[in-house]
């Protein structure tokens, strides 16, 4: 999985100064958007980042290249994430909803689509003989058995989405704890 310690190998476009400025030509902007989108997805996948909070993320090396002294503006960054949301590669997380400015600042990044996560979890359940087993969400993301899995430490929202897909397929059922909180899942065999 992720080669820890080594920094993410940025593509050559990352060292191209105009890449960090929103291009006025709409055609150029479209291709710039898709380049940024794949860069963000690759970066998040490499570093296993599940959420981007623009307040802090804007200072990451992802959005600012110190070597060429260029960085992305917050608005441009938001626009890029917005296009990713439209393509289904990300999803805005509504903050605590205190004010409108709070909105569209934090996003979940789907560097794998929920369907992929769902398949991966279903395969893992099969291969570890956990059909008909009851698992807590914490057990899936941080348990002993999921240690070497790609979904290790998966964001709760993404996990829930993936599990919902399995529920729709009839492969699982969401369970509530005694205090009514959604907390676990029961898996069934594949039929």
């Amino acid at each position: 999985m992720s080669t820890e310690g080594q920094p993410f190998p940025f593509p050559s476009i990352y060292s191209f100064p105009p890449f960090f400025t929103r291009q006025p030509n709409s055609q150029t902007w479209t291709s710039q958007l898709s380049l940024w989108s794949s860069l963000i997805l690759g970066y998040c996948r490499y570093n296993r980042i599940w959420r981007i909070d623009l307040n802090t993320a804007i200072e990451w090396d992802l959005f600012s290249n110190k070597e060429i002294n260029r960085s992305l503006k917050l608005d441009t960054c938001r626009e890029i994430l917005d296009s990713m949301v439209k393509k289904g590669n990300a999803e805005w997380v509504s903050g605590s909803g205190r004010d409108a400015a709070d909105k569209n600042l934090s996003a979940i990044i789907f560097w794998r689509r929920p369907e992929e996560w769902a398949n991966m979890i279903a395969d893992w359940i099969d291969s570890t003989g956990q059909r008909n087993a009851i698992l807590t969400f914490y057990e899936i993301s941080d348990g002993d058995l999921s240690f070497s899995q790609d979904f290790r430490g998966i964001d709760a929202t993404i996990l829930r989405k993936a599990l919902d897909i399995l529920v729709r397929r009839g492969q699982a059922q969401i369970m509530r704890s005694a205090d009514g909180e959604v907390a676990g899942v029961k898996f069934f065999g594949v039929q």
């Binding site: 059909r131 008909n132 009851i134 698992l135 807590t136 914490y138 057990e139 009839g170 059922q173 369970m175 704890s177 005694a178 907390a183 676990g184 029961k186 069934f188 065999g189 039929q191």
Partner: peptide, 22 residues
Amino acid sequence: ISSSRPSRRITKQDNAILNMKL
């Protein structure tokens, strides 16, 4: 054996296991 069982529901035991795991 277990998949041929009609019960594809959450039973009391399931809930007990879940609570213990939580």
